[in-house]
Amino acid sequence: MFQLALARMREFYREPEAVFWVFGFPIVLAFALGLAFRNTGPGQLQVGVMPGPGDSVLAATLDSSPRVVASVLDTATGRLRLRTGRVALLVLPGDPIVYRYDSTRTESGLARLEVDEVLQRARGRKDPVAIRDDRTTAPGSRYIDFLIPGLLGMNLLGSGIWGVGFSVVQARQKKLLKRYMATPMRRSHYLLSFILSRLVFLILEVVALVGFGWLLFGVAVRGSFFTLAGITILGAFAFAGLGLLVASRAKTIEGVSGLMNLVMLPMWILSGTFFAYSRFPDAMIPFVKALPLTALNDALRAVMIDGAALTTLGAPLAIVAAWGAVSFVVALRIFRWR
């Protein structure tokens, strides 16, 4: 079994594409998304002022605020820019002053508040209560803090299903599986060798991704590393089982690729990898929560962000373990050895 696992690992690391997809890709993804959604705040709000009496004075007043960039635009340009989102809000001079904006856009809502604040103060409004701002940036609340555990979960899913599925189907297609059957090798050893080799790569995957998040974005692990290790091992087992199940019957690489996408795509979207699954309609939430990747992501976030202890994670971990156990048993039952 040790030799089988060793062979599996050698086949893997001698495949440069596979190495990239498992290690490189999540890191590139984390880097790109981390950069795109870095916490610089909402940035400067682009505001347009339509032509009218006192338009340039209005624009200058707004522009003096550090958070607003305002300029006078002609009517057609202003409409176009509002429609395409290049300005968050249009100010129509007059009495009353009209704010034109799309109330469903977060940025426009912010611009509405900011512009109103600047204009009212410029016209002499006095605040009835004294206010002091106390700004903090808490690690754990940023997008990258949310993203890294999600990518970790997605990576465990992907490498489990790809790593196991492709090797099994390839061995079956090349009649290597049949050749193994002609030796005294135990069938369970063959399947366990996948799990063993997955464990070794798992350590590298987790270290690479968590280390990357920590070094570049300061994403810390609040909970214990042992808890994190336990959860990732359980996740790797479950997804290796799922990979075996996906590959248990397929005879061709094309066939198994379709099945893999069928399994993985819904989870990538639904399981809260890139955004919180609470955005989905309430009716879908129980279904989404029953998915193994959702449960794993929840558990990973609880440990990395909230610092939760293993004991509080019974429910999601039970879901992950159940998926793994059921897939493994079913895979063993229906596995096509020839």
Binding site: F2, Q3, L4, L6, A7, R10, E11, R14, E15, A171, K174, K175, L176, K178, R179, Y180, A182, T183, P184, M185
Partner: peptide, 23 residues
Amino acid sequence: LQETQLADKLTVTETLALFRSFY
């Protein structure tokens, strides 16, 4: 067997060590 293709990425020694381990 007639149609078996052994694993491409393994060396000759590694392939034999693997098969040897089954016995």
